[in-house]
Computed example of a mutant assay.
Amino acid sequence: MLCERWLIRPLYGRGIDYPLLLTFGLAYMMVEGVRIIWGKAGIPFDTPEALQGATNLGFAEFPTYRLFVIGVVAALLAALWLLIEKTSFGLIVRAGARDPVIVRVLGVDVSRVWLVVFGVGTGIAALAGVLSAPLQGVSPEMGTSVLTVAFVVTVVGGMGSLMGAVVAGLLVGVVESMAVLFFPEAAKVSMFLIMAGVLLVRPQGLFGRAGLMS
């Protein structure tokens, strides 16, 4: 949030490329800082004892920890939807994304709103890192592999759409998993094929609104 206040906020209004490049550079600086302080080698992260093993679903055995992650994600998505769609703060966020000038004219401090939104987004990213640690271990680059997938999901779902992010994430995940099962060589290419196909039909994404980023 300090980065948003002192580094990113001065770049608002200059085009999306400026804050994107700044945060991209900050991410690399943070990764290198972690390498310098704690080293380059990854370390395992044990699954909590209460969540180890598998749960019988009646038709199959499924890892208990993955069920826990699914539950946390579902609860988090429900909370985000309620915040964005059913509260006055969410109304301000949606209005500010469309026309921040009008929102300022109405007396709302949009800068404070973006500060809170940035903090919430960063907190969710941190939670995602903690939840994924038992699945892949902890390493300085553990977030790097997610960037490409996150970019594809954002483009496919549509900028500014929570429903779009959920649908696109499920679509990309299922298609890539099926590709790994039947055609492993094309697994990584599959999500880019989805993105190209969606952009050809709907440049704003599946649930995006035209002109949102203009």
Results as ranks from 00 to 15, higher is better:
P63I: 05
I36K: 14
A210G: 03
R14M: 13
V103F: 03
A60G: 01
E176Q: 15
V120F: 14
Y28L: 15
V72M: 13
L76V: 15
E185S: 14
G39K: 04
L115C: 08
K86C: 04
A97I: 11
S214T: 14
R66V: 06
R209D: 06
F24S: 09
V108P: 00
G205A: 07
A41I: 10
A165I: 02
F207M: 15
E185C: 00
L171W: 03
W114T: 08
F192D: 04
E176D: 13
T154S: 11
V73H: 02
L20T: 13
V149W: 01
F192R: 03
L83D: 04
V166C: 08
L127E: 08
V93S: 00
A150Y: 09
V156L: 03
I84S: 02
V105I: 14
R202Y: 02
I84T: 08
P19L: 03
M159E: 08
S161W: 04
G158S: 07
Q204M: 11
G25K: 08
P48A: 10
P184L: 06
L2Q: 06
A210V: 14
L131I: 10
E4N: 05
L20I: 14
Q52N: 11
R112A: 05
L57F: 05
L20K: 08
K188W: 00
V152W: 01
G143E: 05
D99E: 09
V189E: 03
M213G: 02
G90D: 09
A133D: 07
Y12C: 00
V120G: 06
M29R: 01
V103D: 02
L131W: 12
G129T: 04
S190F: 04
L22Q: 03
A179K: 06
G58A: 05
L91D: 07
G121P: 10
V108Y: 11
K188N: 12
R5Q: 14
G205F: 09
V172W: 09
L80M: 15
G121K: 10
V101H: 09
L131V: 10
V73E: 03
A54Q: 13
W6T: 12
V101L: 11
G71F: 13
L181G: 04
I70T: 12
F45D: 04
N56S: 12
P100W: 14
L11R: 06
L131S: 08
V108K: 11
V153T: 11
